[in-house]
Amino acid sequence: MSHELGPLLLTFRLASVTTVILFCIGVPFAWWLANTRIRCKPAIEAMVSMPLVLPPSVLGFYLLLAFSPEHWFGQWLDRVAGLRLAFSFEGLVVASIIFSFPFLVHPVQAAFQSLPRSLHDAARVLGKSRWQIFFHVLLPNIKPALLSGTVLAFAHTVGEFGVVLMIGGNLPGQTRVASIAIYDEVESLNYAAANFYAGVLFVLSFLILLLVYVVNRRVPNGHG
């Protein structure tokens, strides 16, 4: 049974690592995007949204090229950080962060923008620093959006297939996540195993989303 659980555990490890890193990068980025007045903001927003519309294989293809040891970026990463991202778990994490970026950034940015400006102003005249305001005033009042964004990003990473296949391949314990394993088992007509992975993903995804909706119903909208 243990070899059968491997892809599932890998999937959840990938989703967890991706979500944690994404949260740390994405939330400050969403705050910046919500407040910035720089001219190229539309271009930045368009870039962030690209993964929503692009076929995963397109992004996966370009990432694969960039990560490859022949490409200057891949060489640079290898030289500076000793990272080889093509066909590795680390590569999957990087790709998943890029690919799930809009799922976290969009709801969080919208929530920051819908907070009344006066909350920020009130905290400023009360003598609070940027970071005090961020952690004590802004973040606690967008909890529902943080939860939805985090969970959507997690769930999306769990469900990702194309981009993983492109840059991760199918290395057991490294890049063979559940969605790949299902495809693989179906290819080899091993329906029972495919059914097992698919069923677990189905039930877990449902439970995660259910949790979001239940919790968001209980947490009153912070700025209502």
């Binding site: 009344p116 006066s118 909350l119 102003d121 009130a122 905290a123 004590h136 005033v137 606690p140 009042n141 909890k143 912070g222 700025h223 209502g224």
Partner: peptide, 9 residues
Amino acid sequence: FQDYALFPN
């Protein structure tokens, strides 16, 4: 402030 600006949390 006109809209009170109390911290909801």
